[in-house]
Design a protein around this nucleic acid. Sequence first.
DNA 1: GTCTATATAGGGATAGAC
DNA 2: GTCTATCCCTATATAGAC
Lengths: 207, 207
Amino acid sequence: MVTESPAVTSAGSPPGDHDLEPRSTRERILDISLDLFTSQGYDKTSLRQIAERLGFSKAAIYYHFASKEEILLALHLRLHEFGREALAQLDSSEATPEVWASLLDRMIEQMLSQRALFIFHERNQAAIENLHQERHEADHDDLQMRFRQALSNRELPIEVRVRMACAIGAVMGSIAFAGDVFGDVPSDELGAMLRGAVGSLLELPSS
Amino acid sequence: MVTESPAVTSAGSPPGDHDLEPRSTRERILDISLDLFTSQGYDKTSLRQIAERLGFSKAAIYYHFASKEEILLALHLRLHEFGREALAQLDSSEATPEVWASLLDRMIEQMLSQRALFIFHERNQAAIENLHQERHEADHDDLQMRFRQALSNRELPIEVRVRMACAIGAVMGSIAFAGDVFGDVPSDELGAMLRGAVGSLLELPSS
DNA sequence: GTCTATATAGGGATAGAC
DNA sequence: GTCTATCCCTATATAGAC
């Protein structure tokens, strides 16, 4: 699959310039794909299905995206935007529990405003990881990678690192694992509770 | 897909009786599949690949499993065994924070002794959920479903339910999300830390 | 930009020899 | 129990008309 793409347009810019129209077909494709990929999974979703919902035919999609994988990538990058500042924070300072807490603090807002995107991401981990193995932009750009990296930092005691892992797990779990269980809870309330939970996890008696 | 299977052998018992041999081909197929499904994802793994590793041909697998999905199911059921007692506990009593804590207490041991299985499960959520939608044994048997059900219980205050979700997220995240980051930490140590984290999350000041 | 038609391949599954 | 050979379907992707 994907034997060799000679000139990858990276973020998936189509041949022509449709950057002019604010929310055009390209965005619609992404929205529909997000929906289908989340409910059925990436692999079980065919381009035909996507085209069906769009109202036009399969081949039309290829005008906007070079391949099915490009759609997945574009969606992944959408999510990625939200991780940019978090990454910056991880770059500038060591990942102490304090930094971690403020990092999660920001993330909670973003996750809550983009639940669908996170759930999609969680449910399609396998597909997305395959993407990373094929391209190589992943290594230091990817959020998850960077988190793992931070958690691997031997300079921090293992107790602290595990707590940090728990904190991120608690946040992601409450959104992704729980699915729509808390769907009716207002975001700011849920956010406050999650911040509280993170606080409980990271306030170590030893510090 | 899977138009209608007239007589599903449920757990996937093969035509003949090979229950005699202790760890035969069937188990080897599962072991190899677990490995491949985890690293590449279910959909990207072909039966040919599995057969290759086994040392014999694709068609031979069909003697042991009626379909590729049966392999996935069998693997899912492996994991499921570990959730049985947890389910029993959820049945017998209301899911209070105390019950939840002791439930997670058990789960932590099991997850740590079966990390590979849990990681496989997490990375292939989409595929497994598709399985659930096709068959119908899922509804009240599935672990994840039951957890969500418990988290939906309106009789508990939302703060408590969110904390419970955080607790399970913390545990699963530290094992699945973190991947092999804590692979070198002895299970009993890691277990102790996770139990500590669960404790911090579930001990609410209000109680 | 969107369509139809078509090329192509890969993978799941079956039949039947050994 | 394992193998070979083969069927068949689906899905990606391309070519070219409109």
